[in-house]
Design a protein around this nucleic acid. Structure first.
Lengths: 223, 223
DNA sequence: CAGCAGCCTAAACGGTCGTTCAGCGTCGCC
DNA sequence: GGCGACGCTGAACGACCGTTTAGGCTGCTG
């Protein structure tokens, strides 16, 4: 919101809280956040009223960062998907914080996931229009699946980082994300290009069970 | 381990803890678990020594349940994948607990995920042998991706449940899982059958970047 | 100079947490 | 009947949590 006092102690506390929350979760105590920012615990409450107020300020700032990152990504040519992967390190703290929001499961988590689904829906529709993405009989379900898969990749990436298998033993978000992106890029691209099943046996079987229960509906087919 | 006193208060406490941990996470207090089991908080410590001991007992019992469920699933014909979906309600508390273990990110989480990856690797290899699953140049990466996607679906399912969109407002795991399974079954089957991209543009582009960095290796192609 | 806002801190308060301890009642065994 | 063993409880302890309160310190203004 205000950018004049963005170098003050208030901003330092907020940034420290976002880093600490993203790294260790929202269970982190205010005294830890205060120590990271180099201030007293009472000052945190003086500026943000309560821990919930601090979290609200973090959410607001993360939302602003996200909007900025999205508009920046839209300004680039759409083919530079791989370049976005390389920029992961830059946005890693933001991603880590937003992922914690999702893991926490609060009321803002579902709203954030809905935003991701809406964005994915738009991107996939644009891809369909350009002819690079296949058609589907359930666009929303597909977008939800793609978002869920990405969140799942973040989840196991964080797991590997916490277990010491990824580059950083202390669960550094950036390195964990980069490691996960490189180790699963090939498999995910192959899956999204060729699929997993060799034929449509399972899909046909599921469609048959659905047609038993419901009256047959007209649906576009993808040969 | 012992099955004689599996009807005693000790077992009641363990079951109550698994339900409560699976529903509300491991931050739940021992007094809440004790109240669910109908005993005093001190008895929990008397039987399990500490909260960590209680969690270890829950982990052990969950592992035993999981092994039993796996062997039971293997006894059925492999084509009854849809029947397994219907049995979700039965294993929902177990799934919810195991998912909490993964969310918690402790040392056992990565081990459990590794087990899931190994199982998926086996299933996919068997599918390849039977001709229903496509070949891949990175079997481990593909298995990791499939597991991560499933975990991500669990994550957003729990989110919807906590937000009141799914059947149960109080985050009942069974209903949330069933709801998620039915709403994304079509999209995931379509994705796994036909893929997401219309052609191999993105996959080829990624392969090109890899070939620039590394010496060309012999890899089997899937036409 | 006095006064008065503003940041900022040290200390303490109530609450919940995991955990400990002394002791209750109730069995089976000698 | 005496009597440990066992399952179990109520009450308390120390630690940590978020939060409150009283009060320093600095710099600007009359």
């Amino acid at each position: 919101m205000r950018s004049v006092d963005d170098l003050t102690a208030r901003a330092r506390i907020r940034d420290a809280a976002m880093l600490r929350f993203g790294r260790d979760g929202f269970g982190t105590g205010l005294r830890q956040v205060a120590a990271d920012a180099g201030v007293s615990p009472a000052l945190v409450l003086h500026h943000f009223g309560s821990k919930e107020g601090l979290r609200a300020a973090c959410d607001e700032h993360a939302h602003a960062q996200l909007v900025a990152a999205k508009s920046e990504a839209l300004a680039q040519p759409a083919t530079a998907v791989l370049a976005q992967l390389a920029a992961t390190e830059r946005y890693a703290p933001l991603i880590a914080y937003l992922f914690r929001v999702v893991l926490d499961g609060g009321p803002g988590a579902a709203r954030f996931v809905d935003g991701m689904v809406d964005d994915t829906l738009t991107y996939l529709a644009e891809g369909e229009r350009l002819g690079v993405v296949r058609g589907t009989s359930d666009p929303v379900g597909r977008a939800r699946y793609v978002v869920a898969a990405q969140l799942g990749l973040l989840l196991v990436a964080q797991l590997d980082a916490a277990d010491g298998r990824a580059p950083s033993p202390t669960a550094e978000p950036a390195a964990a994300l980069a490691h996960m992106a490189t180790t699963t890029a090939r498999a995910s691209l192959e899956l999204y290009t060729h699929g997993l099943f060799a034929d449509s046996t399972y899909l046909d079987a599921w469609r048959a069970t659905q047609d038993d229960a419901r009256p047959p509906t007209t649906e576009q087919e993808q040969p």
